[in-house]
Design a protein around this nucleic acid. Structure first.
Lengths: 146, 146
DNA sequence: TACTAATTGCAAATGGTTTGCATTTGTATA
DNA sequence: TATACAAATGCAAACCATTTGCAATTAGTA
């Protein structure tokens, strides 16, 4: 039930999507693939600081990845954008802590809800995907509140 | 099955939450209550232009409403924040057009999924709520694409 | 090895949102 | 109804994450 955290073959993935292979892009994809949670840009900058890449370059890489469908940009609250590698066969939903904003990925999916959505909507007759996020309080915060 | 669009009693709602009753706040709540879809700030500014309120004041009012739990701030994509009035008894989910970003509210809810989330998460033992958004293509865009 | 287009770094611009502060307004109280 | 005080507002400035322009560098291909 736990998400497998195998580092992906970043170079192949880049090649597959016709991206040039650069140290930053490789490291970004590897960091994303090894993270059990979606990551904000700030954390990606920290995790790639070895390369001292310009933030602009990191933003450009991430936007390109999202555009290519390799990475999913997820917004759990107003401001924070989180990035996560798109892994086929793992359709993630998320659970967000309402106290510390921690995000955890949940590798489970209710297949039938897409169909239900179609039934209740008049304006849409085709549903491609859905995003489901749960809001709760994580154990750490519950403990801290005691 | 269609969401009822009755204008709420904005003045009572403000009083209930110990907010002072000002023209802008009343109009904001009324506009929100009459909208079948969650609204971005830009649209709220347009819809209240009669009052010529400063954007800063509108942001302050919305943030206060969200903090008080009267309004729900919803982010469907990276940048756009949409505001919708919290109506008891109507737990909305949403469907978003991947072409024009139109958002429609869906007054339906699968009660059981909160429980399922708990079962698959080790870090969270309490789920307060969930947000579900569907992504599809609306009829208008499908027509336009032909 | 040389060529070409893509990628990067740097600095500046962008734009939505927030903040500080003086003024105005709403509301509770006398 | 008048008074008083905290709350709300307008304005301008600050903020800050993200984007953009451009020149220099780098990766892929022959």
């Amino acid at each position: 039930m736990k998400k497998q955290l195998q580092p992906i073959d970043a170079e192949s993935l880049l090649h597959e999507h016709e991206f040039k292979k650069t140290p930053l892009r490789i490291m970004l994809l590897e960091v994303l693939s090894l993270s059990p949670t979606p990551l904000p840009v700030a954390k990606l900058i920290r995790k790639t600081k070895k390369l001292a890449a310009d933030p602009a370059t990191i933003y450009r890489a991430l936007n390109a990845f999202v555009e290519a469908g390799m990475v999913h940009a997820l917004t759990v609250d107003k401001t924070k954008v989180l990035y996560e590698l798109v892994q086929e066969k793992i359709h993630n939903h998320h659970i967000v802590c309402d106290t510390c904003s921690a995000v955890e990925s949940i590798p489970f999916c209710i297949k039938t809800i897409d169909q239900q959505a179609i039934k209740v909507s008049r304006q849409f007759n085709k549903v491609h995907s859905h995003q489901l996020a749960f809001v709760g309080t994580c154990r750490k915060c519950i403990r801290a509140l005691r």
